[in-house]
């Protein structure tokens, strides 16, 4: 564990907590894409399949449970909670996210480190996570400005993988044989997809306006 990865995990945790806070306290998911949340639930479900078979640390297992629990709870809230469900913007959240799942699965079947069931699904989760934010970014463009909590959620979610990139650079220089091109490229693509969001988000900080 290094400071970059810890900061990355804490940023990721913060993004999930901000979203749960928004949905649970003000009972609203306005501006939040259910499709992105569904993709993230699939990402965690396929990435943490080894949660019961390979123990790394208490921290690792705890965080996996938090991410699994929170992502599925958010989907449940947005789909079935009567108050929250009413605030979901169904007409605008129309990105065909299932069109993202299949190509990621095919790509995982073609490009992976080992051809085993767990490894292919784990690789699939990496590719899917890289594009999972797309429905949210499209929804953001359609609904124009968004509330602060949703903006902070997206900012933290984009930032965590950027910190992971610093972690991979650090581990590459400090650990022999630490080379994972698939993870690195997927993480880089994921972070680059947030580039224009970060640009407008920082403009907001500088200009003091809402996220246009």
């Amino acid at each position: 564990m290094n400071i970059f990865r810890l900061a990355g995990d804490m940023t990721h945790l913060a993004s999930v907590l901000v979203l749960l806070l928004k949905i649970h306290t003000i009972k609203s998911c306005a501006g939040v894409s259910l499709r992105t949340q569904e993709l993230y639930a699939i990402v965690f479900a396929t990435r943490y399949l080894d949660i019961f078979t390979s123990f790394v640390s208490v921290y690792n297992t705890f965080m996996k449970l938090v991410f699994l629990g929170s992502s599925f709870s958010i989907v449940w809230y947005m789909r079935y909670h009567k108050a929250v469900h009413r605030t979901y913007d169904r007409e605008q959240d129309t990105f065909r996210h299932w069109f993202l799942v299949l190509p990621c699965l095919v790509l995982a079947l073609l490009i992976h480190e080992k051809f085993t069931f767990l490894e292919v699904l784990w690789t699939f989760s990496l590719y899917l996570e890289a594009v999972a934010i797309l429905p949210q970014l499209v929804l953001l463009q359609r609904t124009r400005n968004i509330d602060n909590l949703t903006g902070q959620y997206i900012f933290l979610l984009g930032g965590y993988r950027g910190l992971y990139i610093l972690n991979w650079i650090y581990r590459y220089f400090t650990e022999p044989h630490f080379v994972h091109w698939i993870t690195w490229i997927a993480g880089l693509v994921q972070t680059l997809l947030y580039a224009d969001f970060f640009y407008y988000y920082f403009l907001r900080f500088i200009g003091g306006r809402g996220v246009e």
Partner: peptide
């Protein structure tokens, strides 16, 4: 052994 290392990242 690079491939057999545990996946220690989230």
């Amino acid at each position: 052994e690079a491939n057999n290392e545990k996946k220690d990242e989230l």
